[in-house]
Design a protein around this nucleic acid. Structure first.
Lengths: 148, 148
DNA sequence: TTATATTGTTGTTACTAACAACTTAAGCCA
DNA sequence: TGGCTTAAGTTGTTAGTAACAACAATATAA
């Protein structure tokens, strides 16, 4: 019959399972480092994109600016982020990480990557490489689908 | 150098991206059906596992029993779930779905699978099949890792 | 220069999620 | 049987996730 639909169904299940198990892992592995999952995501975004305005960070994270403002607040309170006024636009703020923020993200990232390494220790390199390519394709496809 | 670690790093990024994009999709595609993401997950678990006790549902979902109790409450209030006393154990409750609950999950599932289908429309069947196998392996590996 | 648009914060609401304390009901055992 | 312990759920509390609306301050356009 419609084999494309059957594949879509199987893919739905597979991605679902992977997401569930990783969400659980994130709760366990990130929250023990004094930050929540969303706070860690903001940390990561600021590490990868460099200093950003609040609006840019919100767009990058696909979150509302109000939600983003509060996530950033929690990072400020914990001493992991800094807010500096943009001299070119008095309304805007530049968000950046403190050395502690950079350090914390490096620590969390390291532990998550080590977990990932232990997960794939029994899987052959060829299979992992193939998975990487496919995951990339799926992500691109999903992102394009969102933009519709 | 350590190629396994590099693969782990790449996998961490790839899975991260996939999860982010799907989390966003879930918020968009599930919440428009009158239920939250967690409520939908409970719905799904009850469809797939059949009637469960609250404790069993909590274990299945990797959530605390108190959290689960409140998620179930919201489904009861919306008329999607039923709570019946277990005649064998007066402390326990049996949770099941109303016809409306089954119907709603079927609707949501259908729309998510259609989205998935549109995502993979440009990807060859062979590639999708390979991705399915790999996603399964990754999920199993991640689940085993959690049990440590 | 007034009108409009943008940036970010705060108020509000609902949901996610855990831990602790508590209620009720089983199960054990002396 | 009566008391002790364990188990199942609920409720209180706290913290975080996330959106929408309203708002203040600043910038841009007409």
């Amino acid at each position: 019959m419609n084999t494309k639909l059957k594949r879509a169904e199987a893919l739905y299940e597979a991605v679902n399972q992977l997401i569930r198990v990783h969400q659980f892992r994130d709760r366990e592995s990130i929250c023990c480092h004094n930050v929540s999952v969303a706070q860690c995501y903001a940390l990561e975004t600021l590490v990868k994109r460099g200093p950003l305005r609040l609006k840019e960070l919100a767009e990058e994270m696909c979150l509302d600016k109000s939600t983003t403002s509060r996530v950033v607040d929690s990072l400020l309170r914990k001493g992991y982020a800094l807010k500096t006024l943009d001299p070119l636009d008095q309304r805007a703020v530049q968000l950046s990480l403190t050395p502690e923020g950079h350090e914390l993200y490096a620590t969390i990232r390291k532990s998550l990557i080590e977990e990932e390494a232990s997960m794939i220790s029994d899987i052959s390199d060829e299979v992992v490489d193939a998975a990487l390519v496919l995951l990339g394709k799926l992500t691109v496809a999903a992102r394009n689908r969102l933009g519709d």
